[in-house]
Amino acid sequence: MSDKPSPVFLERRSYRQRRLVDAARLLPLAGALLWLVPLLWPQDSGPDVAQQIPAVPTSSAIIYIFGIWIILVLSAMFLSAMLDHKSDLRYQGDQPENRDT
C-alpha cells in the first residue's frame, strides 16, 4: 500500500475535528466503564453481608444508571452536531485500524 506522506501538523480546524473523532471513539468505552461500576456495589448476598455494608437501594441504582444514560445521550448529541458532515471522507485516510493488518 502506497501511503502518501501526510502532513505532520494539521490546520486548527482539522485538528479539532480529529480530536472530536477521538472523543466519539472513546465515548462508548467511557459509557461501558461507568455502567460496569455497579459491579463494585455491595450486595445483600455474598461477602458484603458479613461486613454489614447495606446494599445500594434500587432507587439510587436507577438514578445512577439512567443518569449515565442521559449524559451519554447528550454527549453523543453534542459530538454528532460538532462532527463535520464531510469528515467521513476527509478522515478516512488517517485511521490506522482501517489499514492493512
Binding site: P38, T58, S60
Partner: peptide, 10 residues
C-alpha cells in the same frame, strides 16, 4: 421501589 421486594441492589 426501595420498599418493594426488588428494593435492594441484587
Amino acid at each position: 421501589i426501595d420498599a418493594s421486594e426488588i428494593g435492594a441492589w441484587q
